[in-house]
Design a protein around this nucleic acid. Structure first.
Lengths: 281, 281
DNA sequence: CAGGAGCGATACCTCAGCGGTATCGGTCAC
DNA sequence: GTGACCGATACCGCTGAGGTATCGCTCCTG
């Protein structure tokens, strides 16, 4: 199978519409139809149920969608990592660390400081991303290491080491009734009269629903202080808060583990050293 | 990048010879040269140092070789898993379990028995492979789960759960001087006058060197009993031995952990159940 | 119920680019 | 110096990817 075919299939499987998929791919609809048919013939199985009114995935198609995304990521990673290896061998060697903007600030700052002081440390470019975006950077070869947060981030297919585990606190507008409590339980949160914020999905678009659209932590905190939403965050976020919001521990919230993750089969000596450093910090 | 280009590059990078690589790919040498040049142009970096007498990898080329293998595995896995999903949705659902022939026999037998007795169990095809081959089956989508042995097998890029950890014993011809000892240390093994066996590599060919070529455990045990070689094996292998060979514990040998592993992002309900079962056995 | 809109499939054409053959230019061995 | 070896280049033919026009089917609508 060629990556072109996989890209075509992914486009159709995501759009569930040949016309839109073709437009997204920058080609006309007939060659796209033909390419998918040919793919089906080679695989010996239908991938899509089509009527003249709708397109849906077959079971085999759902598997291929999933696998094709992973395969395309791997191909893109091959390209990106090769490009980066080329510049590293001519210019200054650099590794890219991806981290969620606003999360694990102190840990990250300390890690970078300690690492930079070590002998043989290379330059570290920090890529601050939106939630969930770090994984994409890792899987597509645009980053070498990332700071992730289990269980929110999906670690499957990545190598990782745990750094710290924290309990969670709920961040509320100061003056909210629940801020009177010293501690809360998840059941208490169900009664909160505020909508949860809507983060952008992997496609960069916000899901539908109530609640304000947010892109970063600054926006989020401001919206909380305006009494528009609330948020569950790791304990360490408390040190970042101004006094117009209040954090209350939630005893039975799932705990957050901060991990340092890197792509499997990484052979970078610098990444290994950075990970070792992270485990000591 | 197209998979064709990656396949071409891997062939050249492995053969380090355009003529042989072209022959292996079943094409003529000039189009291969051209394809590699074009790949280099697109990536903006040389991948190979060529003289008219030799071809060697650049640093970027070494990275691409590594990444391209992983990417090609992922593409092949997409194809295989789709094919298998197609037959599973028409015929009887089946999962394929890969295990090293001759290793972990009792554990495997018990696992299959217990699993088969569970409600909702699907048919399990067992693929018995040569050493190291299980990973290839997993990574290329021809198997759904595998029994592997850390640290011999490389677990990176796979999800895994540990089953049992065992110490190792050295298997010697009966009558060998060292069989007089009740226990041994790694240092003692250095003095053994026998060559170690040569297993086939990932390419199916045996490395050069002294020692007999072996393909499976039956061969191995016979060669040991003939006084031709010796072998380090997990403790549990003792139950498989006949009385013409002797096992002696090696106190400081690295211990072997038997793990059940599966490809990341696996969504198979049957695989999850089999893994749960394995953890209980 | 007729007509139109929307959508995927089909027919047919064009041309980019992949692969083939012939050959060149450079290097090493004898 | 000469032949062997090897990758690069030049040039050609043809496969197949992509384009346009159109068909056939289904559902909506007046």
């Amino acid at each position: 199978m060629e990556t072109r075919e996989l890209r075509y299939f992914v486009a159709v499987a995501e759009e569930l519409h040949f016309g839109r998929a073709a437009e997204r791919l920058g080609i006309a609809q007939p060659p796209l139809s033909r390419a998918i048919r040919q793919l089906e013939r080679r695989l010996g199985t239908p991938l899509l149920h089509r009527t003249s009114r709708s397109v849906t995935l077959t079971a085999a198609g759902a598997v291929l969608l999933h696998e094709a995304r992973a395969a395309l990521d791997a191909v893109e990673a091959a390209e990106q990592r090769t490009r980066r290896a080329a510049v590293a061998s001519t210019g200054r060697p650099t590794i890219v660390l991806a981290s969620k903007a606003g999360a694990s600030r102190e840990l990250l700052a300390k890690l970078l400081d300690v690492y930079a002081a070590e002998p043989g440390a290379v330059h570290v470019d920090v890529a601050l991303c939106g939630p969930g975006e770090q994984q994409r950077l890792l899987r597509t070869g645009r980053a070498d290491v990332a700071i992730l947060h289990a269980p929110y981030d999906d670690l499957s297919g990545l190598d990782a080491e745990e750094l710290v585990t924290e309990t969670q606190v709920v961040i509320l507008p100061s003056g909210h009734p629940l801020t009177a409590a010293r501690v809360l339980r998840m059941a208490d949160l169900a009664g909160i009269d505020l909508p949860v914020p809507r983060w952008p999905g992997p496609d960069g678009r916000h899901p539908d629903g109530p609640g304000p659209e947010v892109r970063d932590h600054t926006q989020l905190l401001q919206l909380i202080s305006l009494g528009r939403t609330y948020f569950l965050a790791p304990e360490s976020a408390r040190s970042e808060l101004r006094d117009d919001v209040v954090a209350v521990p939630v005893l039975d919230a799932p705990s957050i583990t901060t991990v340092v993750a890197w792509p499997p089969h990484s052979r970078s000596q610098a990444v290994a050293q950075l990970v070792r450093t992270a485990l000591l910090v």
